[in-house]
Amino acid sequence: MQILKVENLYKSFAGSGEVVTDVSFEINEGEVIAVIGPSGSGKSTLLRCLTLLERIDHGTIKVAGETMVETTPQGRVVYASEEQLRKIRLRLGMVFQNFNLFPHFSVMRNITEAPIHVRGLSPAEAGEEAEKLLAKIGLTDKADAYPYQLSGGQSQRVAIARALAMKPDILFFDEPTSALDPELTGEVLKVIRQLAAERMTMLVVTHEMAFARDVADRVIFMDKGQVVEEGTAKQIFGDPENERTRNFLRNFSANHKLG
């Protein structure tokens, strides 16, 4: 089943020109897509458009067959009604670079608040689900801790659990390890690998090339707002067709070890 379909998406910001230019791709259920590319290539902006944090200038986005936004032949961008968008939003999960945990809530409440007040679960049900999620990310003992008491890696794992608690159809990651100390990235990537093994549909914007190569079914390489190349991880990392992809990966492996 097709979870996400993006067609001819454009997004620009006043003063900074076009940030995303004519991007099209789709994601099927159970697929893991890695989006790679140099800084400022529009990866994060693309993600923010897909999660309704930014409004697009042109194009179509469909989530599980439902139209989130489309563009009329006259070029008018039409979003679904607030009511429909609320439903569509429930299908989307997002993990931010800076975690964005709620500092005034315990770990447990960070995870249960939205299921209770948005999905309408009883506190008991939400608590039960949260405990399973905490076990999954290995933080059962931190249920009563507050975000300031967690390391970056632990915070990001809680943020993943918080997103999963909403039972999204697709989970977006915006550079989930970029704000972490190098020794803490492993524990977060491990959780994402585990989700991939469970066939969670995911789109991961990342600078972790080894991770993208090992975990992603498909890789999208973006540069200057455009999708330059798209293919299986094996093809993109093994035998990239495009000159820009080759250059990027060559520079990258010169600066980082592709372990």
């Binding site: 999960g93 931010f96 964005n100 007040h117 948005v118």
Partner: peptide, 17 residues
Amino acid sequence: PIGQYEAAAVLGFTRTQ
């Protein structure tokens, strides 16, 4: 921080919530 609003929006909280 703006991230608090964005995290809440993505989780489906209404503006009032």
